[in-house]
């Protein structure tokens, strides 16, 4: 397939009218029709169904639309990044990062992006995964890094980045650091610290399943605060392992494990800035699981 064919296809798919699409693309309608037919030859079936009064996308056309859109955007980004490098064009990026995410790769990617796009204007937002998904859906955020929701909105594209296991976070002199809790009843004796309104939700659920009830007493607004509170001896935290930086200890729950898949997500079909497109592609090119493992080895 060729760029102009895809460009004509995208215009025709948006306008559902070949005449208007041809005007928008600044070509004659026969040229546009011919280019789309060539694309259909390659796909082996029609992408449009043209009736007298209306033009529709076929099922194949509907299925291919997001992919053709994405590859077209990737091509544009590769060109713009080559042209824009070193130039002071303003490149805004609004990125939401869930409070449960701390990742060395994020820093590295942002650092490189800042170097490649001298006009980068980064607005970082923080929140729970649910809040960030809402902000993305409402158009306030270009991209979000969040916990994969059980039921993601249909229009939310999600690309898996890495998985992390939830752990009990304690001070290194806490009994859990030496031996994991022997029974669910032990969990009841601890004061728990809530991270940004999650209420230690999954831990509470597991505890309930095995007949125990945990007491969530303290509230932390972010990972840094939570670590400070744990270090101060106020109680135990329940977070992804990557948040439990030394000198704190992370202990796996012996009865019931919880793993979260973190994803990079964005609302499908919405126009994104060059910086957002560039971040999306460089982030997806990386092995985030590996980067996290490497950081841990370095820390240990």
């Amino acid at each position: 397939m060729e760029m102009h064919q895809v460009r004509y296809f995208l215009a025709a798919a948006r306008l559902l009218n070949f005449t208007r699409a041809a005007i928008e693309c600044n070509v004659s309608q026969p040229s546009l029709t011919k280019a789309i037919q060539k694309l259909e030859d390659e796909f082996g079936a029609p992408l449009f169904r043209r009736e007298r009064a209306r033009t529709h996308l076929t099922e194949l056309g509907k299925a291919m639309l997001p992919h053709l859109e994405r590859s077209f955007e990737a091509a544009q980004t590769a060109k713009q990044m080559a042209r824009g490098m070193g130039r002071a064009e303003i490149a805004p990026l609004t990125l939401g990062v869930a409070r449960t995410v701390e990742h060395a790769m994020l820093e590295r990617v942002l650092a490189e992006l800042g170097q490649s796009l001298s006009g980068l204007e980064l607005a970082l937002a923080n929140g729970s995964s649910r809040e960030l998904i809402e902000l993305a859906m409402s158009g306030s955020l270009d991209l979000i890094i969040v916990e994969m929701p059980d039921e993601a909105p249909e229009r939310l594209d999600c690309w898996p980045l890495f998985a992390d296991e939830w752990c009990i976070v304690t001070r290194s002199d806490h009994p859990f650091a030496a031996a994991p809790p022997a029974s669910p009843a032990v969990l009841e004796e601890e004061a728990w610290i809530d991270l940004a309104g999650d209420g230690c939700a999954t831990l509470a659920r597991i505890a309930t399943q095995v007949g125990a009830a945990i007491e969530v007493r303290h509230q932390a607004q972010g990972a840094m605060q939570l670590r400070q509170m744990v270090q101060a001896g106020l109680g135990c935290g329940w977070t992804p392992r990557s948040l439990a930086a030394p000198p704190l200890a992370a202990t796996k729950l012996p009865f019931g494990s919880v793993e979260t898949r973190f994803v990079l997500a964005s609302v499908a079909g919405r126009r994104r800035s060059v910086a957002a497109e560039a971040f999306l592609r460089v982030a997806r090119a990386q092995d985030w699981a590996l980067a996290n493992a490497v950081t841990k080895v370095a820390a240990a």
């Binding site: 397939m1 060729e2 895809v6 796909f43 590859s71 544009q76 980004t77 590769a78 592609r281």
Partner: peptide, 19 residues
């Protein structure tokens, strides 16, 4: 280099639907 979503391949007429 990583041509994520085959963008550069597309711009050179090198991306295709495998079928």
């Amino acid at each position: 280099l990583c041509d994520v979503d085959h963008g550069v391949a597309l711009s050179l007429g090198l991306a295709f639907f495998a079928g």
